[in-house]
């Protein structure tokens, strides 16, 4: 009798895990996997405002959306802006994160928890709220930036209204908002740097700079790769900053890929076209992820 009970329970437990998985899997399938496939198909159709009213008018257009996209100057502008934002913001963010992590790791620093908390605070804020605040900080006549710069004799700049400065202004906000997150990861990574190696380097006569270049940096390499990849992926999708602060302007200089996608898809309801744009973004992110993995594999092979 005991034996039967056991085999019963084993039979039962083959079904139980699927039961426990089913809510999550069903939700992921309906609201993620299926939509990815549907969006891919959509990107080959002329789905627009008329289709929303009458699904019968939907037509297959092949690669037309992609071709139209590649012939659209605004698409290239958005792609270029996004690349500019990523190439400027990622190195600056990582440098700020690593710099502050190294600073807070120094023995001489007092009140470490206070500094850590303060530098981390921007991370947990609502992006839209701080973007609104920064919009006023950049105000040409009474913004904090121009006030501070007036002390060093710099004339007022219309940061968000100037095509040259608008994007760097958004980059500075992004660095301020995000550096605390990776700072925490670097701080944890620094705990893992072998003290023996540091001591050995010091005995060999290495100065602090040499120790940093030859011990700390290589030991932090896996952390840095991870941080760089997640930051690149996140920044490729920037949207709220230009939406709130510049609305893509001036002269489309802050139009990002996702902002363009939002406009085409949800303002002009050209969903087929916007879906094609979403897949270009996906391909971009996938390509970057794969190349990061490739670099890491090559490094690991050495």
């Amino acid at each position: 009798m005991k034996k039967t009970g056991k085999s019963m329970s084993r039979l039962f437990s083959q079904r139980v895990p699927y039961l426990f998985l089913s809510p999550a899997l069903a939700l992921l399938f309906i609201f993620f996997v299926l939509p990815v496939g549907a969006a891919f198909l959509m990107s080959f159709t002329d789905f627009d405002l008329y289709t929303l009213g009458d699904f019968g008018s939907l037509r297959w257009v092949g690669f037309n959306n992609y071709l139209a996209l590649f012939q659209n100057a605004l698409f290239w502008q958005a792609l270029q802006n996004t690349a500019y934002f990523v190439l400027l913001a990622v190195p600056l963010s990582i440098a700020a994160s690593l710099g502050m992590a190294l600073a807070l790791d120094a023995k001489a620093v007092r009140l470490k928890p206070l500094f850590r908390l303060g530098f981390f605070a921007p991370v947990v804020t609502t992006l839209v709220a701080v973007a609104v605040v920064w919009r006023y900080l950049y105000h040409p006549s009474y913004g904090l930036f121009n006030w501070l710069l007036s002390f060093v004799g710099i004339a007022p700049v219309d940061w968000l209204g100037n095509p040259v400065w608008a994007m760097p202004a958004l980059v500075l906000l992004a660095v301020w908002k995000n550096f605390g997150y990776n700072m925490m990861i670097f701080l944890a990574g620094l705990q893992g740097v072998s003290q023996d190696l540091r001591d050995a380097a010091r005995i060999d006569g290495a100065g602090p700079w040499q120790e940093f270049l030859n011990i700390t940096i290589p030991q932090l390499a896996p952390t840095t790769t991870f941080v760089a990849l997640t930051t690149v992926i996140g920044y490729c999708q920037f949207f709220a900053e230009p939406y709130v602060m510049t609305n893509g302007g001036p002269l489309n200089q802050t139009m990002s890929v996702v902002l363009l996608m939002y406009r085409e898809g949800f303002r002009f309801w050209k969903m087929g076209y916007a879906a094609a744009l979403a897949f270009v973004l996906f391909a971009l992110i996938l390509g970057i992820s794969l190349s990061f993995m490739q670099v890491r594999r090559e490094k690991a092979a050495i």
């Binding site: 992921l28 309906i30 609201f31 993620f32 996997v33 299926l34 939509p35 990815v36 549907a38 969006a39 959509m42 789905f47 992926i233 490729c236 999708q237 996702v258 996608m261 898809g265 949800f266 969903m271 916007a274 879906a275 979403a278 897949f279 973004l281 996906f282 992110i285 996938l286 992820s289």
Partner: peptide
């Protein structure tokens, strides 16, 4: 499979989910 879903940016799913 589930882990591999993480490389897909959420924006890709927005249009079909909206329609649904």
């Amino acid at each position: 499979w589930l882990l591999s879903l993480m490389v897909i940016p959420g924006q890709v799913t927005m249009f079909p989910v909206f329609l649904l």
